[in-house]
């Protein structure tokens, strides 16, 4: 991998992380939240693959990336399931509706 591609990938990871964290801070919709979380996870997976590449163990990096994607899919599924319940019980997906526990 030439340095330019490396830099490009690094930029992609960083910007995905940035988008993810920013998204978590501003998103109001629960489904969007879960999607943003997935963006973050993809950033991490990309980062792992990149790390494998940089330490010349691309196969290790790729297997880590795939494992991460699988593991976090479960999290996404659980998150969606909870979102469905919220929609059923509260009739909304707005996270601001979920702020009864405070203080």
């Amino acid at each position: 991998m030439n340095p330019t591609t490396l830099k490009l990938c690094l930029m992609a990871v960083l910007s995905l992380v940035g988008i993810g964290l920013y998204g978590l801070m501003i998103c109001r919709n629960l489904i969007k939240m879960v999607i943003v979380l997935q963006i973050l996870v993809k950033a991490a997976a990309l980062g792992l693959i990149l790390a494998g590449q940089m330490s010349s163990q691309i196969n290790l990096g790729q297997s880590l990336g795939i494992t991460v994607i699988v593991a976090d899919t479960i999290v996404a599924v659980v998150g969606m399931a909870l979102a469905v319940q919220v929609q059923r019980r509260l009739g909304t997906l707005d996270v601001d509706a979920l702020s009864s526990l405070r203080g």
Partner: peptide, 15 residues
């Protein structure tokens, strides 16, 4: 989940 992503990024850096 946000925390665990941060951990993953850390693992990537270490690797």
């Amino acid at each position: 989940a946000a925390g665990s992503v941060l951990v993953l990024l850390g693992i990537g850096l270490v690797l």
